[in-house]
Protein backbone atom coordinates (compact mmCIF):
# COMPACT_ATOMS: atom_id res chain seq x y z
CA UNK A 1 0.00 0.00 0.00
CA UNK A 2 1.13 3.51 -0.72
CA UNK A 3 0.22 6.22 1.74
CA UNK A 4 0.40 9.98 1.26
CA UNK A 5 0.19 12.43 4.16
CA UNK A 6 -0.44 16.14 3.60
CA UNK A 7 1.08 18.30 6.32
CA UNK A 8 0.94 21.99 7.13
CA UNK A 9 3.65 23.78 9.09
CA UNK A 10 1.91 26.30 11.33
CA UNK A 11 2.46 28.66 14.30
CA UNK A 12 2.71 26.80 17.63
CA UNK A 13 -0.69 26.75 19.34
CA UNK A 14 0.82 28.57 22.34
CA UNK A 15 1.94 31.51 20.15
CA UNK A 16 1.01 35.06 21.09
CA UNK A 17 -0.60 36.47 17.96
CA UNK A 18 0.29 40.00 16.84
CA UNK A 19 -0.79 41.74 13.66
CA UNK A 20 1.94 42.40 11.13
CA UNK A 21 2.62 42.93 7.46
CA UNK A 22 0.04 45.02 5.66
CA UNK A 23 -2.47 44.50 8.48
CA UNK A 24 -3.88 41.30 7.04
CA UNK A 25 -1.36 38.77 8.37
CA UNK A 26 0.24 37.90 11.67
CA UNK A 27 3.64 39.22 12.67
CA UNK A 28 5.85 36.16 12.19
CA UNK A 29 8.63 37.52 14.42
CA UNK A 30 9.27 35.19 17.35
CA UNK A 31 6.81 32.55 16.15
CA UNK A 32 7.79 28.93 16.67
CA UNK A 33 6.57 26.64 13.88
CA UNK A 34 5.16 23.17 14.33
CA UNK A 35 3.53 20.41 12.29
CA UNK A 36 -0.20 21.14 12.61
CA UNK A 37 -1.31 18.91 15.52
CA UNK A 38 -4.07 17.19 13.52
CA UNK A 39 -1.59 16.34 10.75
CA UNK A 40 0.43 14.47 13.38
CA UNK A 41 -2.51 12.08 13.84
CA UNK A 42 -2.63 11.57 10.05
CA UNK A 43 1.09 10.85 9.89
CA UNK A 44 1.00 8.50 12.87
CA UNK A 45 -1.85 6.52 11.32
CA UNK A 46 0.00 6.16 8.00
CA UNK A 47 3.16 4.98 9.77
CA UNK A 48 1.19 2.46 11.85
CA UNK A 49 -0.52 1.11 8.73
CA UNK A 50 2.86 0.78 7.03
CA UNK A 51 4.32 -1.00 10.06
CA UNK A 52 1.38 -3.41 10.19
CA UNK A 53 1.07 -4.24 6.52
CA UNK A 54 4.06 -2.85 4.64
CA UNK A 55 4.18 -0.06 2.12
CA UNK A 56 5.57 3.41 1.80
CA UNK A 57 4.67 6.75 3.37
CA UNK A 58 5.15 9.96 1.40
CA UNK A 59 4.67 13.34 3.10
CA UNK A 60 3.89 16.47 1.13
CA UNK A 61 3.85 20.08 2.31
CA UNK A 62 3.22 23.34 0.47
CA UNK A 63 4.74 26.49 1.89
CA UNK A 64 7.89 28.57 2.35
CA UNK A 65 11.43 27.31 3.11
CA UNK A 66 10.75 26.56 6.80
CA UNK A 67 8.39 23.73 5.79
CA UNK A 68 11.44 21.53 5.15
CA UNK A 69 12.07 21.46 8.90
CA UNK A 70 8.60 19.99 9.37
CA UNK A 71 9.19 17.42 6.63
CA UNK A 72 12.47 16.41 8.26
CA UNK A 73 10.55 15.73 11.47
CA UNK A 74 8.02 13.60 9.55
CA UNK A 75 10.88 11.55 8.09
CA UNK A 76 12.35 11.14 11.58
CA UNK A 77 9.03 9.72 12.77
CA UNK A 78 9.00 7.11 10.02
CA UNK A 79 7.96 8.61 6.67
CA UNK A 80 9.94 7.30 3.70
CA UNK A 81 9.75 10.12 1.22
CA UNK A 82 9.18 13.89 1.47
CA UNK A 83 8.06 16.42 -1.12
CA UNK A 84 8.18 20.16 -0.50
CA UNK A 85 6.21 22.34 -2.90
CA UNK A 86 7.83 25.71 -2.35
CA UNK A 87 5.74 28.86 -2.25
CA UNK A 88 2.46 29.67 -0.59
CA UNK A 89 2.82 33.43 -0.18
CA UNK A 90 0.46 34.31 -3.05
CA UNK A 91 -2.14 31.72 -2.04
CA UNK A 92 -2.11 32.38 1.72
CA UNK A 93 -5.44 31.50 3.35
CA UNK A 94 -7.03 30.41 0.05
CA UNK A 95 -8.03 26.82 0.73
CA UNK A 96 -9.07 26.04 -2.85
CA UNK A 97 -5.82 27.39 -4.33
CA UNK A 98 -3.85 25.39 -1.74
CA UNK A 99 -5.92 22.29 -2.55
CA UNK A 100 -5.17 22.73 -6.27
CA UNK A 101 -1.44 22.78 -5.57
CA UNK A 102 -1.60 19.81 -3.19
CA UNK A 103 -3.85 17.75 -5.48
CA UNK A 104 -1.42 18.31 -8.37
CA UNK A 105 1.49 17.32 -6.13
CA UNK A 106 -0.31 14.16 -4.98
CA UNK A 107 -0.96 13.28 -8.61
CA UNK A 108 2.68 13.75 -9.57
CA UNK A 109 4.03 11.88 -6.52
CA UNK A 110 1.44 9.06 -6.66
CA UNK A 111 -0.52 6.98 -7.25
CA UNK A 112 -1.55 6.36 -3.62
CA UNK A 113 -4.06 4.00 -2.03
CA UNK A 114 -4.74 6.23 0.94
CA UNK A 115 -4.25 9.98 1.37
CA UNK A 116 -4.35 11.37 4.90
CA UNK A 117 -4.35 14.86 6.37
CA UNK A 118 -5.50 16.57 9.56
CA UNK A 119 -9.10 17.76 9.96
CA UNK A 120 -7.74 21.32 9.90
CA UNK A 121 -4.57 23.30 9.77
CA UNK A 122 -4.50 25.14 13.07
CA UNK A 123 -4.22 28.86 12.46
CA UNK A 124 -6.36 29.41 9.39
CA UNK A 125 -8.77 26.87 10.94
CA UNK A 126 -10.73 26.34 7.74
CA UNK A 127 -11.14 22.56 7.68
CA UNK A 128 -11.54 22.64 3.90
CA UNK A 129 -8.38 21.48 2.16
CA UNK A 130 -8.86 17.72 2.68
CA UNK A 131 -12.32 17.50 1.08
CA UNK A 132 -11.22 19.87 -1.68
CA UNK A 133 -8.15 17.75 -2.54
CA UNK A 134 -10.37 14.64 -2.60
CA UNK A 135 -12.84 16.30 -4.96
CA UNK A 136 -10.05 17.51 -7.26
CA UNK A 137 -8.55 14.00 -7.34
CA UNK A 138 -12.02 12.48 -7.81
CA UNK A 139 -11.65 10.20 -4.80
CA UNK A 140 -14.06 9.86 -1.84
CA UNK A 141 -13.22 11.35 1.55
CA UNK A 142 -14.14 10.92 5.19
CA UNK A 143 -13.32 13.80 7.54
CA UNK A 144 -12.98 14.00 11.31
CA UNK A 145 -11.93 10.37 11.61
CA UNK A 146 -11.35 9.04 15.14
CA UNK A 147 -11.22 5.33 14.22
CA UNK A 148 -9.99 3.76 10.99
CA UNK A 149 -9.88 0.22 9.63
CA UNK A 150 -8.32 -0.27 6.23
CA UNK A 151 -9.24 -3.48 4.41
CA UNK A 152 -8.56 -4.78 0.93
CA UNK A 153 -9.81 -2.13 -1.42
CA UNK A 154 -12.00 -0.33 1.12
CA UNK A 155 -12.03 1.27 4.53
CA UNK A 156 -14.37 1.76 7.46
CA UNK A 157 -14.08 4.97 9.46
CA UNK A 158 -15.84 6.60 12.40
CA UNK A 159 -16.33 10.22 13.20
CA UNK A 160 -18.02 12.01 16.07
CA UNK A 161 -20.93 14.26 15.20
CA UNK A 162 -23.24 16.32 17.42
CA UNK A 163 -24.97 13.78 19.63
CA UNK A 164 -23.45 10.61 18.21
CA UNK A 165 -21.03 8.78 15.95
CA UNK A 166 -21.24 8.16 12.22
CA UNK A 167 -19.72 5.04 10.65
CA UNK A 168 -18.59 5.44 7.03
CA UNK A 169 -17.41 3.03 4.38
CA UNK A 170 -15.53 4.05 1.27
CA UNK A 171 -13.57 2.29 -1.47
CA UNK A 172 -9.85 2.96 -1.93
CA UNK A 173 -8.26 5.18 -3.02
CA UNK A 174 -9.74 7.52 -0.45
CA UNK A 175 -8.78 10.62 1.53
CA UNK A 176 -9.09 10.54 5.32
CA UNK A 177 -8.95 13.71 7.46
CA UNK A 178 -7.83 12.75 10.96
CA UNK A 179 -9.21 14.07 14.25
CA UNK A 180 -7.84 13.90 17.77
CA UNK A 181 -8.52 10.47 19.25
CA UNK A 182 -7.42 8.50 16.17
CA UNK A 183 -4.11 7.58 17.81
CA UNK A 184 -1.35 8.83 20.08
CA UNK A 185 1.46 10.25 17.90
CA UNK A 186 4.99 9.09 18.66
CA UNK A 187 8.04 11.26 19.20
CA UNK A 188 10.88 10.88 16.74
CA UNK A 189 13.59 8.45 17.93
CA UNK A 190 17.27 9.31 17.81
CA UNK A 191 17.71 6.53 15.26
CA UNK A 192 14.88 8.00 13.21
CA UNK A 193 16.40 11.47 13.37
CA UNK A 194 19.75 10.15 12.14
CA UNK A 195 18.14 8.08 9.36
CA UNK A 196 16.01 11.05 8.26
CA UNK A 197 19.13 13.12 7.60
CA UNK A 198 20.10 10.76 4.78
CA UNK A 199 16.79 11.12 2.92
CA UNK A 200 16.79 13.95 0.39
CA UNK A 201 13.71 16.20 0.37
CA UNK A 202 12.34 16.63 -3.15
CA UNK A 203 11.58 20.29 -3.82
CA UNK A 204 9.06 21.26 -6.45
CA UNK A 205 7.52 24.55 -7.50
CA UNK A 206 3.86 25.05 -8.47
CA UNK A 207 5.13 25.60 -12.04
CA UNK A 208 6.52 22.05 -12.02
CA UNK A 209 2.90 20.95 -11.45
CA UNK A 210 1.60 23.02 -14.34
CA UNK A 211 0.22 25.72 -12.04
CA UNK A 212 0.83 29.47 -12.17
CA UNK A 213 1.01 30.55 -8.54
CA UNK A 214 0.65 34.25 -9.39
CA UNK A 215 -2.63 33.51 -11.17
CA UNK A 216 -3.80 31.28 -8.29
CA UNK A 217 -3.31 34.20 -5.93
CA UNK A 218 -4.54 36.81 -8.42
CA UNK A 219 -7.14 36.38 -11.15
CA UNK A 220 -8.13 32.92 -9.90
CA UNK A 221 -8.15 33.69 -6.15
CA UNK A 222 -11.15 32.22 -4.34
CA UNK A 223 -10.57 33.61 -0.85
CA UNK A 224 -8.61 36.57 0.49
CA UNK A 225 -7.76 37.91 3.91
CA UNK A 226 -8.51 41.61 3.68
CA UNK A 227 -7.83 42.58 7.27
CA UNK A 228 -6.71 40.95 10.49
CA UNK A 229 -7.60 42.31 13.93
CA UNK A 230 -7.22 41.30 17.54
CA UNK A 231 -10.51 40.79 19.42
CA UNK A 232 -11.55 43.66 21.68
CA UNK A 233 -10.10 43.35 25.19
CA UNK A 234 -12.61 42.62 27.90
CA UNK A 235 -13.33 45.04 30.75
CA UNK A 236 -12.55 43.79 34.25
CA UNK A 237 -15.14 41.42 35.65
CA UNK A 238 -16.82 41.12 39.05
CA UNK A 239 -14.73 38.76 41.15
CA UNK A 240 -16.23 37.42 44.38
CA UNK A 241 -14.30 36.05 47.33
CA UNK A 242 -15.56 32.53 47.95
CA UNK A 243 -12.88 31.43 50.37
CA UNK A 244 -14.55 32.32 53.66
CA UNK A 245 -18.20 32.01 52.69
CA UNK A 246 -18.47 29.80 49.60
CA UNK A 247 -22.26 29.45 49.91
CA UNK A 248 -22.70 33.22 50.15
CA UNK A 249 -20.49 33.77 47.09
CA UNK A 250 -22.46 31.10 45.22
CA UNK A 251 -25.76 32.81 46.06
CA UNK A 252 -24.40 36.20 44.97
CA UNK A 253 -23.08 34.68 41.70
CA UNK A 254 -26.49 33.14 40.95
CA UNK A 255 -28.17 36.47 41.69
CA UNK A 256 -25.79 38.38 39.37
CA UNK A 257 -26.24 35.84 36.57
CA UNK A 258 -30.01 36.05 36.93
CA UNK A 259 -30.58 39.76 37.44
CA UNK A 260 -27.52 41.57 36.07
CA UNK A 261 -26.23 39.39 33.21
CA UNK A 262 -29.69 37.87 32.57
CA UNK A 263 -27.82 34.75 31.51
CA UNK A 264 -29.86 32.16 33.43
Amino acid sequence: MKYCVLVAYVPDTASIIKIGGAGNRIDEGGIKWIISPYDEFALEEAIRLKEARGGEVTVITYGPDRGSTGLRECLARGADRAVHVMGGEATFGDAFAIARVLAAAVQKAGPFDLILCGIKGVGSDQSLVGAMVAELLDVPHVSGVVKLEVGEGSLTAQRDVEGGTEVFTAPLPCLVAAHKGLNEPRYPSLKGIMAAKKIPIETWKPADLGLDEAALGGAEATSRWLKLELPAAKAGGTILNGEEDPAGAARELARLLRHEAKAI
Binding site: T238, E243, L253
Partner: peptide, 28 residues
Protein backbone atom coordinates in the same frame (compact mmCIF):
# COMPACT_ATOMS: atom_id res chain seq x y z
CA UNK B 1 -9.17 32.66 33.32
CA UNK B 2 -10.16 35.56 35.64
CA UNK B 3 -8.77 38.04 33.06
CA UNK B 4 -11.51 37.09 30.58
CA UNK B 5 -14.22 36.41 33.17
CA UNK B 6 -17.25 38.68 33.55
CA UNK B 7 -17.96 37.04 36.90
CA UNK B 8 -15.68 35.00 39.03
CA UNK B 9 -15.53 33.24 42.36
CA UNK B 10 -12.15 32.72 43.97
CA UNK B 11 -12.67 29.62 46.04
CA UNK B 12 -12.84 25.86 46.25
CA UNK B 13 -15.16 24.63 43.53
CA UNK B 14 -16.17 21.65 45.69
CA UNK B 15 -17.61 24.14 48.20
CA UNK B 16 -18.96 26.66 45.68
CA UNK B 17 -20.72 24.48 43.12
CA UNK B 18 -23.17 22.58 45.41
CA UNK B 19 -24.76 25.76 46.87
CA UNK B 20 -24.68 27.32 43.39
CA UNK B 21 -26.69 24.38 42.04
CA UNK B 22 -29.24 24.77 44.86
CA UNK B 23 -29.54 28.51 44.25
CA UNK B 24 -29.99 28.06 40.48
CA UNK B 25 -32.70 25.43 41.05
CA UNK B 26 -34.47 27.87 43.37
CA UNK B 27 -34.24 30.73 40.85
CA UNK B 28 -35.52 28.45 38.08
Amino acid sequence: IFKVADYGVVGDLFQVIPPLVEEIKKLK
